[in-house]
């Protein structure tokens, strides 16, 4: 098998006295869609945030696209290649949807305005909201905001996309529109790490599922196997509770 695009080796992370990640090992290859499950406080989001250095891990090793994070001279070079979608959207509130997509393209990728805007309009069309280009985030629904946020991350042409509970803050009827965009992205072959409890999405798109608890990877495997017949007691308990919903 080829070299993994994300290589995580024995990573530990502390928040003060809280041991948030306890020796995580994980390899992700190009084109894989990895869904991370687990109860709150299990370290899923922390792991995701370590991959683009929003959190700095304390020991171990993370290599993203051939760059070792700890010693990276220019962390922004790594972040350009890793798109991130947040639970709370985090769209720039003072900019329109279109400007949200063009800002980093122009300031980081140094693209000329026209190229950035064309790119932005194409992406807004792709996520199905080209008619909202001139709207401010406060004028958009949650689902629309999250789709703009996905388009904003894609505008940088990342090699990897990280999704941190992208549908947890959404009303039920808006979850589908966001998942549809993510599903389309997965089908195009994007490398994705998704922290989510959307079992439907995991079954449809994931090449692998990971169950985390108390800062460790408890179990991993193909979605059908992990979701239907988990081997670990902790996983069984969690899956049964989530499926009751």
């Amino acid at each position: 098998m080829s070299e993994p695009i994300i290589h995580i080796e024995n990573v530990h992370k502390y928040f003060g006295r809280v041991h948030a990640l306890r020796g995580i090992n994980l390899d992700v290859h190009v084109g894989e869609v990895v869904v991370i499950l687990g109860p709150s406080g299990s370290g899923k989001s922390t792991l995701l945030r370590c991959i683009n250095n929003l959190e700095v891990y304390n020991s171990g090793k993370i290599v993203v696209d051939g760059i070792l994070l700890k010693t990276a001279q220019n962390i922004n070079a790594v972040r350009r290649e890793v798109g991130m979608v947040f639970q709370s959207f985090n769209l720039f509130a003072h900019l329109t949807a279109l400007e949200n997509l063009t800002l980093a393209q122009r300031k980081v990728r140094k693209r000329p305005r026209q190229e950035a805007e064309k790119n932005a309009r194409d992406l807004l069309a792709k996520v199905g909201i080209s008619d909202k280009a001139t709207c401010y985030p406060s004028q958009l629904s949650g689902g629309q905001q999250q789709r703009v946020a996905i388009a904003r991350a894609l505008a940088m042409n990342p090699k990897i996309m990280l999704f941190d509970e992208p549908t947890s803050a959404l009303d039920p009827e808006m979850i589908k529109e966001v998942l549809d965009v993510m599903l389309a992205l997965a089908r195009e072959g994007m490398t994705m790490l998704v922290v989510s409890h959307e079992m439907g999405f995991a079954r449809a798109a994931a090449s692998r599922c990971i169950f985390m608890d108390e800062g460790q990877i408890v179990e991993e495997g193909p979605p059908d196997k992990l979701l239907s017949s988990p081997t670990q007691e902790r996983t069984k308990l969690f899956i049964s509770k989530v499926l009751q919903l």
């Binding site: 972040r79 350009r80 798109g83 991130m84 947040f86 980093a104 300031k107 946020a149 904003r152």
Partner: peptide, 9 residues
């Protein structure tokens, strides 16, 4: 965080 995750300084 969103700005930094897009590679801005």
């Amino acid at each position: 965080e969103a700005a930094r995750s897009l590679g801005m300084s």
